[in-house]
Design a protein around this nucleic acid. Structure first.
Lengths: 227, 227, 227, 227
DNA sequence: TATGAATGAGGTTTCATTCAT
DNA sequence: CATGAATGAAACCTCATTCAT
């Protein structure tokens, strides 16, 4: 239901049909690909630096070193630029997840969890200011297509290991885990760099997940507790 | 033909110094208090309905049934209105927390956790769309004074019960718990009303917290596991 | 429901740092040069007609037949437009001065003075209403770079002729002369067209200057006095 | 020709009849006189500090410690406040002039001129910033009733001493002298405090006037010239 | 195709003035 | 009388978008 207030000098409003946010044309030549890449990188920089509102298409075009006309040749609107950035980011995140969840069968749960969290934290250490802006605005537009994807990934993984787990409502658990871990990583990156640096922080986050899902709670890093 | 209606001739742009977001003046008459209240309620409605960007001061004033001048008599900017709303909301949240954590000593941990989560979920059930907007924008400006407050509340509570807990880094744990629970409640309220309705969802969230902090993991609601 | 048309969300008010009044960008295409010229001419007309306060950027743009956006593409503020006008005017004035003072060595003082005053009066006969507005507002902002320039021009000229003059404090004299003659010409043009028309008025103004600076006071036009 | 754009919440414009700028009611009680005085002093301070445009009636009332309603009880508009200030200032100036020109017969011209200039300079040393604002804005509205008064004062004085003078066009001379001396004093006070401090500056200004009007030019302070 | 000049709706904010209390 | 809450026209300025070159 995104309301895209496209202003134009004269005339009618762009119709609200689906597909309005798709890139306007696939860049087929090298120069064009380069232009699109420059625009996206400039958009990332401008968004990271000033936030969504301060990032105007004119500023982005200028930062990219292309004319505003060129920007509109490849993106039909400002939102489309942001959307392309969001998608790129989501694909990267999804890649991290998929890579770590692909061989679920061959590893024990604490190992998987730790690898996942490490991957996520690393991913969040890259330009957290941009991530923040993207997150807020992807939240604004869609119900986060990627979240659904990640959730079902996690859900599937949990089903695979069901025997070892102690989780009654897999849907709820997937939602809770994905939301918690993603936000904790995000907020830590944005607001608490001091925490990110502590190794105990990662330990605690691991503990949160592992103790929650595991039938017994061996908590490998706290042997004292095991007795 | 001298014209009197002069305007900002030289260097009078408001600078972003501290205090710029503070309300402009306290309403002293009853009528004024009523106006301020109307503005805040209208702002809540407009923000909830259209999001931050679509909420213009003109729209807010109109929705409040007051003139735009009245709005600017009490708030120096659009941001100041939002800030006032955020603060009000935060105070309410904090109230819920404090009430539930006041008699920490007299109750066992699972009870406290459940009460807290129930409280938070209740709080989030009120106008989730508004909460969403406020959250995004309070996150935008400050490191959310309230988050700090809640975190230290939780940290203090955990210290009181330290003997029963198995947490190495209390700071990290408080950050992780507050972030996780708050966001899970929030996202559930905004994006997954279906989950909110299931009792198992609350159970799972409880499990997340309780299993994490408790030395042993009795998980009262899953007696089968205890044997 | 995200709304795209965002606006200055946080701390983006233009600060009054140096350079804020400089034109925003040099027009590079012919069309743009034409636009800028139209804006300046319209500004002159509007200022002359209604004074500074009544001259709004919207009115100027409208009078120029361009959109308000075009105005702001080339000038960052109303003040910048006025400043550009002032500078243009000052350059013209300075040109008149320089032309008349260039061959100081080859002429006698009364001749030079008369030429200067005639030049100034001519310059002031052009659109006196505009001059008035510009003068008031250039006085408002800077110590009028042009006044300094004219003063040092006059000072230098006086030094060249020092032997023939009877002036103790050259700085003070230059200030006094420039201020007096400029203002007398100006006020006469604006408020006393009747005086401007009389030849005796120019004679008196000449007498003021010549008698002041000359060692003896030959006052060529009043031979009776010489005896 | 002053166009007074009086905005009001609803309804019609105030008619442009003469007398609109007269104070609304004569303060008859002591308290009221005090209020009026406070408003005028506050207006002076605010005008001096921020210039005409930045001086709003609300700011003036606040600075005066009275409510905006009280201001409008005694002055029908912002312009009326400024006008009252201008008139007060002009009366003072006129007083200086009159005092010094009253006994023209009993003194010689250089003495009179010197006294007048000293008086004017003193008058201008008081709050030059305010004077500047008042001058610009009295110039804006009226053709300066006081200038006419001073001019005819000077003209009359010159007629009295006609035998000793060498001035052909008394009208022009009065205009030139009043304009020159007033502006030189004014600009010196506002822009060149360094000049004001030099005794030679005053000497030069005296010389300007005395040499101009006097049949011979004895210039008492430059005996060297006299041989 | 790339450029950048032009557009103009509409956002934010101010302030002279009125009038109920 | 004094107060100060309320008004709203209108000023300044931005920025997404188009289109002539």
């Amino acid at each position: 239901m995104a309301h895209i207030r496209t202003r134009r000098p004269t005339g009618s409003r762009r119709s609200r049909a689906a597909g309005v946010l798709a890139p306007r044309k696939e860049p087929s030549q090298d120069r064009a690909r380069h232009t699109v890449e420059a625009i996206l990188q400039a958009a990332a920089a401008v968004l990271a630096q000033g936030g969504y509102d301060k990032a105007s298409t004119n500023r982005i075009a200028e930062a990219a070193g292309v004319s505003i006309g060129s920007l509109y040749q490849y993106f039909p609107s400002k939102e489309a630029v942001v959307k392309a950035l969001v998608e790129r980011h989501e694909q990267r995140m999804l890649g991290v997840m998929r890579a770590h969840l692909s061989d679920v069968a061959s590893q024990d749960i604490p190992t998987i969890v730790r690898a996942l969290i490490d991957g996520l934290l690393d991913a969040h250490r890259v330009d957290p200011r941009l991530q923040k802006v993207l997150l807020e605005h992807s939240g604004g537009h869609t119900s986060s297509s990627i979240d659904d994807a990640v959730e079902s990934l996690v859900r599937t993984a949990m089903e695979t290991k069901k025997a070892e787990l102690d989780v009654a409502d897999l849907d709820a658990a997937a939602f809770i885990l994905v939301t918690s871990v993603r936000t904790v990583c995000h907020r830590a990156a944005v607001e608490r760099p001091d925490l990110l640096a502590r190794s105990t922080f990662v330990d605690e986050l691991n503990a949160l997940v592992v103790r929650y899902v595991l039938r017994t709670t061996p908590s490998p890093k706290r042997p004292s507790r095991r007795r």
